[in-house]
Design a protein around this nucleic acid. Structure first.
Lengths: 246, 246
DNA sequence: CAACACAGTTGCGTATAACGCAACAATAAA
DNA sequence: TTTATTGTTGCGTTATACGCAACTGTGTTG
């Protein structure tokens, strides 16, 4: 399949800019892309004229532009799941007092597509658009356990509790399938515990995962156990709602 | 300034896809771009291989991909304003009981970059990434009044209360500058009232606007007046904080 | 303040790659 | 099954994207 190279280069520019927090200059960009300064300059200006890139406040460097925020909105809005799930996220927060999140599978990771924050001063924040690994988060485990995505190849240790072998992961996913929910007991972030359940559509295909996250200080393992039935119930209600809508 | 045409075409594809809610086929795309089917096909596949585009569930049509959500996050995260403003948005919700929003100027419009929702069942929702006109929203008026952006050329009537002449708008902006806050009295959405204040950085340059929105049924003009001092105060605190940080 | 160093832009010729054509493959409709 | 429509691929041509080098602009240093 032939690729349009100059378009590919432009997209690479966007990827590179996403990595750099405070902009990048034309010369540095040319280095990373392994093209001439002139080419890099022309790429940037094309992206600039369509709003995909903007000049940094200092006037020399360039960074991603606000048009991307608009485009992302179109991606997120397309998902009927998000709309429907909103009130169930609120319900989760009301019932548990912790932050509720909604995630889908994307590019081998869990992509947060919505959040409802609790009003506790200490709370777990996960912004929309954030990505997290599948194997060490509750939302991710649910997506792995009930979806038919390929298992992650390398399991990086994030905390002392992170699952780092394929055998353990397989066992954990089996457990998740049996009990219908997944738990993250400080496996991704030290001091954070989560619980998540799957959301299915009318064809019983998983479309996402919902769950809550809270500080370990407030969310003991016992309390997590207690909350599981509530989270399962709300997840079931959401699934029922999605089935009914179609 | 020479533009790289094939990159420009690829970006146009993204723009077109952002408009279509349920994907677009290669042939239709070729029509809109005024290129050959083959070219459109190659463009789509390049975008596909970088994750900017994905196949719709039906397998034939194409739509914007989740990578864009990631990129948008990089845009939003770059803004120190958003991080700092978060707790002040929460404070606004606590004090007023209505939804709080944070917006910046982008592409001649107000771009919502954060929201904290109230727990009232009837509330005004404005998702991150949403754009709104400057001349008929409280946040937008603030940006216009205290920024040096050019005034919008055509003032479209949104409701019976929308300001639709340049003279009225100039007068309104003068008033906003004098009193230090802006009000939107059902000028954008029927049944919605808002109030907003500017946020300045250490150089007294406006960097954004914060405000609250509520249903007219609950937010009378009197109550709006009452809340203005609270909103002004919280906006001032945020500005002070930003000045202190630099 | 001059001299310099470095970053970014533009003109130009060439080699390349993007384009359209048309044939082919794949899917949906009749 | 036939037919209509949509998406993909090989190929030759022509447009265009590229690198080079000169130029401009900006900030830095002696």
């Amino acid at each position: 399949m032939s690729e349009i190279q100059s378009l590919a280069k432009g997209l690479k520019v966007l990827d590179i800019m996403a990595e750099t927090s405070d902009g990048i200059g034309v010369t540095e960009l040319a280095d990373q892309l392994e093209v001439n300064k002139a080419t890099a300059s022309r790429l940037v200006h094309t992206l600039l004229s369509y709003g995909f890139v903007e000049q940094a406040p200092d006037g020399r460097r360039y960074q991603l532009g606000p048009v991307l925020v608009q485009l992302s909105r179109s991606v997120i809005n397309r998902m009927p799941l998000r709309e429907t799930a909103k009130s169930y996220l609120h319900k989760l927060v009301r019932v548990t007092g912790e932050c509720a999140h909604l995630a889908i599978y994307a590019q081998g990771q869990a992509l947060y597509i919505d959040q409802v924050e609790s009003d506790a001063s200490l709370r777990v924040n996960a912004e929309v658009g954030q990505m997290a690994p599948l194997y060490c988060t509750a939302l991710g485990k649910v997506l792995l356990a009930f979806g038919d995505y390929s298992l992650p190849a390398n399991l990086e240790m994030r905390t002392a509790a992170t699952i780092i072998t394929q055998e353990e992961l397989a066992l954990e996913l089996k457990k998740v399938r049996q009990q219908g929910f997944a738990i993250d007991d400080e496996e991704y972030d030290e001091g954070v515990r989560c619980i998540a359940v799957p959301v299915f559509d009318f064809r019983n295909k998983i479309v996402g995962a919902v769950g809550i996250s809270g500080p370990a200080a407030r969310v003991s393992l016992d309390r997590l156990e207690e909350m599981s039935s509530q989270v399962i119930q709300i997840g079931q209600e959401l699934t029922d709602r999605l089935k009914f809508k179609q």
